[in-house]
Amino acid sequence: MLQQYGLIGLLALIAIAFPFVTVGFTWLIRPKRPDPIKNSTYECGLETIGDTWVQFRAQYYLFALIFVVFDIEAMFLFPFAVAFNSVGLFAVIEAILFIVMLAMGLVYAWKKKAMEWQ
């Protein structure tokens, strides 16, 4: 088993090093003529007004939170799916109960109009 992860580990080292190596290589051949206008923030040729950071809507955060819950749910369902052939009908009902609980959360979000983009 660890052999396969050895390959994945080597691949990871190569895959993370490779972009840096190529960017380093282009550093040797590319022109380097920075000037303050060129290096300023690109906003379609207009001058930047104010700070980059502006108040963003909190609703993005709500979606991220709902995502976390469903992500963890999926993590629990995968081992169940793998074990599915060896478990009985009762276990299936348990798993469906598990999903129904989360579906209730989804229904709650729906009813509270938390998923309407306003």
């Binding site: 995968f78 169940f80 793998v82 074990a83 478990v87």
Partner: peptide, 10 residues
């Protein structure tokens, strides 16, 4: 993984 799964519902 199958063992983890069957113990979740067992």
């Amino acid at each position: 993984i199958a063992k983890i799964g069957s113990q979740f519902v067992g």
